[in-house]
């Protein structure tokens, strides 16, 4: 429908890197200026974990049995709750408009924003997971696997969640809808992540699950930013 005269198709790679790092720096800077929002998902994670002993009883055996699933399900929910904020502020203040308009190619910016968001949610969550694992009596030899699966899995959650956030960016109350849309897509990550920990606590080798998580991460990294970029264009049409 519209043609752009004389667009520079051959943007050198240094340019892409500058765009990527510029966006990353800006998002991290903004996140550091509002540290409260940074802590919220972590608090949610810890509170959520702490509810389980109160719900199912303090027996170490029971808790150890459900630990893998609980640790992963709550990580999933914590990240999901943080997802809505990925584009919300930018949309409200109008910078998303400029981002959409001038970020060429858009998926580079999306990737940078996702990385920034993950560094602010998924990574800290991975780092405090051992504490939560301690509360649930997860065997100590499984903690390494827990952290590794979170390290591989949470970026996928951020990527997919970013797509959902982009689709619902112009909706005032998109939070619940976002969960409805995205949670089914999270299923493979949950199964592989929690599965790996269960396998380790049973004394087996979790390599297969971990490889699968890595493969899903690679696939998500290459495909989802394009979907998110398209979703942003659509979400901004209002």
């Amino acid at each position: 429908m519209s043609t752009l005269v004389g667009t520079d198709d051959s943007a050198p790679q240094g340019h892409l890197w500058r765009l990527f790092s510029g966006q990353l720096r800006r998002d991290l800077l903004a996140a550091v200026r509002a540290p409260g929002e940074l802590v919220n998902p972590l608090m949610f994670y810890l509170i959520g974990i702490a509810l389980f002993p109160m719900g199912v009883g303090p027996g170490p055996n029971t808790l150890a049995l459900i630990a893998a699933g609980v640790l992963w399900v709550l990580a999933l929910l914590a990240i999901l709750l943080a997802m809505d904020g990925m584009f919300r502020r930018d949309y409200d203040d109008g910078t998303l408009e400029q981002f959409n308009l001038h970020m060429q190619p858009l998926f580079v910016g999306v990737l940078a924003k996702t990385l920034a968001h993950w560094l602010m949610t998924g990574l800290p969550l991975t780092l405090i997971a051992p504490l939560a694992a301690l509360w649930l009596y997860l065997p100590s030899h499984a903690v390494g696997t827990l952290m590794l699966t979170l390290l591989l899995g949470t970026p996928v959650l951020s990527l997919l969640g970013g797509m959902g956030a982009a689709l619902t960016v112009s909706l005032r109350r998109g939070g619940l809808l976002l969960a409805l849309m995205i949670l089914p897509l999270y299923v493979p990550v949950l199964i592989m992540g929690a599965g790996a920990i269960t396998v380790v606590t049973d004394g087996l080798d979790p390599a297969a699950q971990i490889k699968w998580l890595a493969a899903i991460l690679a696939l998500a990294c290459t495909l989802v930013p394009f979907a998110t970029a398209a979703a942003l264009r659509i979400g901004m049409e209002q």
């Binding site: 429908m1 519209s2 043609t3 752009l4 005269v5 004389g6 667009t7 520079d8 800006r26 903004a30 502020r89 930018d90 409200d92 203040d93 109008g94 910078t95 408009e97 400029q98 959409n100 308009l101 264009r233 901004m236 049409e237």
Partner: peptide, 25 residues
């Protein structure tokens, strides 16, 4: 920013758009 229109549109290579919203973080 809004592809839902019909007609021909040719633009110069680079443009500046400033919308309603401030566009500042």
């Amino acid at each position: 920013l809004n592809p839902d229109f019909e007609g021909g549109l040719t633009l110069s290579e680079r443009l500046l758009y400033q919308g309603h919203r401030v566009g500042l973080n």
